[in-house]
């Protein structure tokens, strides 16, 4: 494949990974109003777990158990879900701003563990992740194949999420987002719903981590900085919380902006760091979204549950 096409495939695969993350955050924040600033933590858990599960045995890190790629994805999701359950069980009833701080702290600690426990994760050196189904196509077409796989995962997830939120279950989530006391007055177990959503969303972050790892084939703690969390927040808030298509478009646009800024390095004077510019732009976007367009580009659909298709 030529350079331009290769870059496009790379870019799209990256966007798909973030699309998965955005769908996960949308179920938490967009539909339920549940604050999770620990996205990067679950993302990391998923990536490392999938790497352990599918990798070849190594004395330098945990695993590899040589399991098939889909099994790795499922286990990555499961373990992320368990992390979410352990974290969420005590803290789910906290007020949203406390929850924000606790989840951000959680993600930082996950990263600390990855950096510190070198025997398990190879620490800051990072570890390799296999390319699944590598022998199916010639090497030069592999990235295209993997884009297809990632898109398939995204599509399945999208359908499942739409089904979930356009049901009475999703309507209950919207209710507790709008007014917890109303939800309680009509018999909804608010903490249970929130915990379900924390776990489900975090499983999706874990899935994204696994898809990311097999795409990048190399993961280090630096792939899971707090900034990743806020990148996803920008995608969801700008794209339109509560609208799955909106947040996918948000993911595509923000990723596009991110990669696009690389071309700035040709224009900008030498010595200006593109990383700093990117971070500044993401920060500015967060400020602007809240100040200018808090409901995002695409609003939420009017009808909560459309299971009857009317």
């Amino acid at each position: 494949m030529s350079g331009a096409v290769g870059f496009l495939v790379f870019f799209l695969t990256y966007a798909v990974v973030y699309g998965i993350l955005a769908l996960g955050l949308n179920i938490q924040w967009g539909f339920t109003g549940l604050v999770n600033f620990g996205v990067a933590g679950f993302f990391a858990v998923g990536a490392y777990i999938a790497a352990f599960m599918t990798g070849t045995p190594s004395p330098y890190h945990l695993g590899g158990f040589g399991l098939p790629f889909p099994v790795g994805l499922l286990i990555a999701m499961g373990v992320s879900g368990i992390f979410a359950l352990i974290l969420g069980f005590p803290v789910i009833r906290l007020r949203e701003d406390y929850l924000a701080i606790v989840t951000i702290g959680f993600a930082e600690i996950v990263r600390l563990i990855i950096v510190t426990e070198k025997n398990i994760t190879k620490g800051p050196y990072g570890m390799g992740v296999i390319k699944p189904y590598k022998d199916l196509v010639p090497a030069s077409y592999y990235s295209l194949l993997y884009l297809g796989i990632a898109l398939l995962v995204l599509a399945i997830l999208y359908v499942a999420m739409e089904r979930a939120v356009r049901s009475p279950w999703g309507r209950a989530l919207r209710t507790l987002r709008e007014d917890e006391r109303v939800a309680i007055a009509f018999g909804k177990n608010v903490n249970s719903f929130k915990l379900q959503v924390l776990v489900l969303g975090s499983m999706i972050f874990g899935l994204a981590g696994a898809v990311f790892g097999h795409f990048f084939n190399f993961i280090t703690p630096n792939h899971f900085l707090p900034m990743e969390t806020f990148l996803v927040w920008v995608m969801v808030m700008a794209g339109g919380s509560g609208n799955n298509i909106g947040v996918l478009l948000g993911a595509l646009a923000v990723r596009g902006l991110w990669e696009g800024m690389m071309f700035l390095s040709d224009v900008l004077p030498r010595g200006i760091q593109i990383g700093a510019i990117r971070l500044a732009v993401i920060g500015l976007l967060l400020v602007l979204v809240v100040m200018v367009k808090p409901e995002g580009i695409l609003g939420e659909k009017k009808t909560a549950s459309d299971i009857l298709g009317e």
């Binding site: 979930a164 279950w169 309507r171 919207r174 939800a183 009509f186 379900q196 549950s305 299971i307």
Partner: peptide
């Protein structure tokens, strides 16, 4: 109004899938 009834079976994730 529709959110109000108790014990809706569609209010579990499993059933809605």
């Amino acid at each position: 109004l529709m959110v109000a009834p108790l014990d809706q079976m569609g209010e579990t994730l499993f059933n809605s899938w």
